[in-house]
Structures are given as structure tokens and as C-alpha cells.
């Protein structure tokens, strides 16, 4: 065990994976500088510039080339710098990465991982704070994974690299260094498609993922101190979604609050609320609450606090569900 941040845990997973010569890492500034968030720090020195590759500034080129490498039998890991810079590569993801298995009926596959830092909270420039995960969850043929803590980050990234299909791996920017915890030194796999019940409770189910887990955990503690026993689910994977865990929990608690920092309309919370409506409606004691970002461009640093859901909003929404 070593105490690690999420950035360090991801670095450990990448280092483990690079022991396999078919794995390569490519992206802008991933080599010499170790990436804009230093997640790939030191890997070029260990594995060489042919394996940890600094590319020209071209997101579509990075993903398209990684796709070709994957089709040819390698296991590329592409790093994009920010979600707001991922859109030039979206055509490759939607039209090719997600489809080649179906297009060729399993003859050609694209087992690549596209790592995308996402979300706000660091007061960055425009385009650096976005949380548009649903543009990826909506695309058939992609898996979408979002760790919230170091221990899961390492195991989920290892699973994503080993997965026979393409994985969009979303890394919450403000969680890169916010939490430290003990992470096993040996390689291990955390399964994709399995949510984590972080805290059991009987009154209400709080469902979140990624960076919002921090506020959700804090809210659960605060609620507990006020006599509300909250169950906390960290989804960890958005596609394929662990429907069973969500439904079982809500059937038990009868109340649900979904939390994400993405915009509200057709955000992932809508999917969760709909699933609860389909599969657990008669267990509900109150309407499902959504605590989300707004349908606005993420405000810049000075007003960003109005956008990102805080502990108070989660607590207030939860207390509303407790009224009925």
C-alpha cells in the first residue's frame, strides 16, 4: 500500500499497463512534460518516446491514429487535455471507434482507452470545465467510466485498458489531487459496470459519480448528523450502468437524489430518474430529486460557485424528499 492521489494512482495503472509492449500512450504533451495534469509523469523516461508519444496538436488525429493502432492489434491509450478539447475527435469516436466491431461483425475491434479530464472546480479558462459526459454515454458501442477516488481510478483504468472494447475514461479534474488514500502497489482490476455502495443507509439513496462524490459524501455525513440515514452510491461506470444496484437501493430507501455537475437537461440524472421510474416507482415515497449543473455555459472563475452543485444543494434536495 502506498498513499496516492488519483493522479498518482492513474500513473501507477499506466505504468503497470506499459509493461505489455502492445500498450502505447499518446497525446499532447504526455511525454516530456508528463501531461498537463502530470498524470503520465516519468513514463516516457521509463518506457521511451516510442511508447509514450508526444503528438502534434490534433485531437482527431490522436484518436484516429489510436483507432488504427487498436485495429492492428495494439492497446493504445489516448490522452486528451480537457473535455472541451475533445470535440475535434468526436467524429472519430462516434463514426469509427464505437462502430468498427459492429461494422465488421467482430472481425476488427478497437480496444483503446480515451482518457479525458473533465469537470470544473479549478477556475480554469473557458472550455476547461465542461462535464458533457452524456455526449459519450449516448453513443452506442462505447463504455464510459468515471472514477471518483484513487483506489478505483487505478483498478478501473487497468480494467479499461484490458477491456476488448473502447472505453471513454473520464477523469475528474478537481479530484486529481483532492483526495489521498492507500492504494495497493500490485496491479488489480476494478470491474467496469459495477457501482459501489460507499455508505449504506435506510432513508434515501444519493447517486453520484466522479468529482461530485466529494460533496455527496459530505452531504451524507451532514444528513447523518441531522438524523437522515443516506445510502451513497458511486456509479463508477455510466455505460454499462449498474441498474440493479440503483434499483435495489431505491426499493429499500424509497427516496433518491441524483447528483451531477453536467447541465440538467438530458443530463445523466434524467436517465437515472427514468430508470427509477420504470423499475422502482411503487417504492418511491417522494419524487426523485436531481441536483445538477444548470443549462448554462460553465461560468468562469469568479462566478463558477453558482454553477457547481455544493453540499447545501444536495442537503436541501434530500430534505425535500424527506418531507413526504
Amino acid at each position: 500500500m502506498t498513499e496516492r492521489t488519483m493522479a498518482q494512482a492513474l500513473n501507477a495503472a499506466l505504468s503497470d499497463a506499459l509493461a505489455d509492449p502492445s500498450v502505447v500512450l499518446l497525446g499532447e504533451d504526455v511525454g516530456m512534460t508528463g501531461g498537463v495534469f502530470r498524470v503520465t509523469d516519468g513514463l516516457r523516461e521509463t518506457f521511451g518516446g516510442d511508447r509514450v508519444i508526444d503528438t502534434p496538436v490534433a485531437e482527431s488525429g490522436i484518436i484516429g491514429a489510436a483507432f488504427g493502432m487498436a485495429v492492428a492489434g495494439m492497446r493504445p491509450i489516448a490522452e486528451l487535455q480537457f473535455m472541451g478539447f475533445s470535440y475535434p475527435g468526436y467524429d472519430q469516436i462516434v463514426n469509427h471507434v464505437s462502430r468498427i466491431r459492429n461494422r465488421s461483425r467482430h472481425r476488427f475491434t478497437a480496444p483503446l482507452v480515451i482518457r479525458i479530464p473533465y469537470g470544473g472546480g479549478i477556475g480554469a479558462a473557458e472550455h476547461h470545465s465542461e462535464s458533457f459526459e452524456t455526449i459519450y454515454t449516448h453513443v452506442p458501442g462505447l463504455k464510459v467510466v468515471v472514477p471518483s477516488r484513487p483506489i478505483d481510478a487505478k483498478g478501473l483504468l487497468a480494467s479499461a485498458i484490458a477491456d476488448p472494447d473502447p472505453v471513454i475514461f473520464l477523469e475528474p479534474i478537481r479530484a486529481y489531487r483532492a483526495i489521498k488514500e492507500d492504494v495497493p502497489d500490485a496491479p488489480y482490476l476494478t470491474p467496469i459496470g459495477v457501482a459501489s455502495i460507499e455508505r449504506t443507509g435506510s432513508d434515501v439513496t444519493l447517486i453520484a459519480y466522479g468529482a461530485m462524490m466529494k460533496e455527496t459524501r459530505q452531504a451524507a455525513e451532514l444528513l447523518g448528523a441531522n438524523g437522515v440515514d443516506a445510502e451513497v452510491i458511486d456509479l463508477r461506470t455510466l455505460v454499462p450502468l449498474d441498474v440493479e444496484t440503483i434499483v435495489a437501493s431505491v426499493q429499500n430507501t424509497g427516496r433518491a437524489v441524483v447528483i451531477h455537475e453536467a447541465p440538467r437537461t438530458t443530463g445523466f440524472g434524467a436517465e437515472i430518474a427514468a430508470l427509477i421510474g420504470e423499475k422502482a416507482l411503487y417504492s418511491l415515497k417522494a419524487p426523485v430529486e436531481r441536483v445538477t449543473g444548470w443549462d448554462v455555459v460553465v461560468p468562469l472563475r469568479r462566478a463558477e460557485k453558482h454553477y457547481t452543485p455544493g453540499v447545501d444543494r444536495i442537503v436541501n434536495a434530500t430534505m425535500r424528499t424527506m418531507e413526504s
Partner: peptide, 30 residues
């Protein structure tokens, strides 16, 4: 689109232009 094993011809690209980089990726892997 199911090319026989041993033949490395990808199914045809229907969108215009997105496929050229794939031949860079396959070549790079090789």
C-alpha cells in the same frame, strides 16, 4: 463488413475523409 481472417481490408469508409488517419494508425502499429 466481416473481412476474412488474414485479409486486412477494412470495410469501406462511408464518411468522407475520416479513414485516412486509420491507415496511419495501422501503419504506425506495424
Amino acid at each position: 463488413g466481416k473481412t476474412p481472417e488474414g485479409i486486412n481490408v477494412l470495410p469501406p469508409s462511408i464518411t468522407v475523409g475520416g479513414h485516412m488517419i486509420h491507415a496511419v494508425g495501422t501503419a504506425w502499429a506495424d
